[in-house]
Simulated scan of single mutants.
Amino acid sequence: MPVAPPNSARDFRQLHEAGLLLLVNAWDAGSARVMESLGAKALATTSAGVAWAQGYPDGDLLPVSRLLDTVAAITRIVKVPLTVDIEGGYSEDPNAVGEVAAGVLEAGGVGINLEDGSGSVDLLCAKIEAVKRAAARKGADLFVNARTDVFLRGIGPAERRVEETLARARRYRAAGADGLFVPGLKTPVDIKAIVTEAGLPLNLMAIGGLPPASELASLGVRRVSAGAGMAQSIFGRIAALSADFLRDGSSAPPPEAGITYPALNALMAQR
């Protein structure tokens, strides 16, 4: 499994330097190919979607081998850069997390998301440092997007969450992070404060109440991720169609399906 070409990593990094990168989150090779065909400049994985597609719950429970197989399958069929959500790195051992990142590089990824969740700031810093060392050993430019869950988990008093996020951002930047992901952040005044002070490109997650893309771009946000919502919707649609079929054997494709069998087949044949 070859490391992604250097120009792919360079292109991905440049997408964070100006404008707003809209990242759709795939969960397997087929979903990634469809998303790429619609003009995506880069792709991301959703940890939840990948885990569900493999029959595991989200939450650092997916076997790393299954993750890397998925990454390799996606990079085989798409040409745009791929960044991979590795949750907390599937280990509390920073060196083991570094090996996961090395595996992502070998499978063709050019970036990762690595989260603090409910863990300590010190631990995520150690993981970032280990990941950067592992990438350096491979001579690869891995984009590390440090995710902090201060807003998503409601950590600390509401009036101090911007301050806490910025304190973490400074630590993560010093450890080697290339981007900052703050899911749950959606208030323009808070977004602007973090954009101004964090010193890292800011990534947000698409959620209800988030300002439109044009406003986010004007605030200086560099990246918005779709998250697990698309995968969740698709699994919901599968459940509805399966329920219909199991009830009365109805097998006619719904009119809103949108992509024909020949079109899907042709997409997968284009490499």
Results as ranks from 00 to 15, higher is better:
G220T: 11
P254K: 12
G111Y: 00
G103N: 07
I155V: 15
R247N: 08
A101S: 08
A29P: 02
L124W: 01
R13Y: 07
V24Y: 10
D190N: 13
Y90L: 00
S118E: 14
A130R: 03
S91K: 03
A18C: 00
A198S: 15
R171P: 03
T260P: 01
D116R: 06
A231K: 03
N7M: 14
G89Y: 03
V195Y: 06
R222P: 08
S65L: 07
A73N: 10
V195W: 05
P57W: 02
A135W: 06
A134S: 15
T187Q: 14
A226H: 04
Q270N: 12
T46V: 12
A239M: 01
M1D: 12
L216R: 00
A257K: 07
P57C: 04
E92M: 13
I259Y: 08
A72R: 15
V104Q: 01
V224Y: 04
R161A: 07
K186W: 01
V195F: 09
L21W: 04
I128A: 01
L216F: 05
C125V: 13
E159I: 05
L22N: 03
T260Q: 07
R237C: 01
P81H: 06
G208R: 08
M230H: 09
E87I: 13
E92Q: 12
A18R: 15
A217E: 15
N25D: 09
M230A: 14
A73Y: 05
A73D: 15
L202H: 04
L15E: 01
L43I: 08
I194Y: 07
D178G: 15
G98N: 03
V189M: 11
A107L: 00
G220A: 11
K41M: 14
L68H: 02
K127I: 07
V84R: 00
L61R: 15
A107H: 03
A158S: 15
G227M: 06
W27E: 06
S37F: 09
F12K: 06
R223P: 07
G258Q: 02
P183R: 05
N7Q: 15
M268L: 15
A175Q: 12
P211N: 14
D85N: 03
T148N: 09
E163N: 07
L180Q: 13
K79Y: 08
L38P: 00
A96H: 13
V162C: 10
Q270K: 05
G111M: 00
G39N: 09
R170L: 10
R170K: 14
P262V: 04
L267M: 15
H16E: 09
L210N: 11
V71Q: 05
R147V: 06
G199L: 06
P63D: 08
R171S: 12
P81M: 05
P254G: 12
R76L: 14
Q270F: 03
L185S: 05
P188Q: 13
D149T: 04
E36D: 12
S250Y: 11
A198W: 10
P253S: 10
A198H: 12
G98A: 00
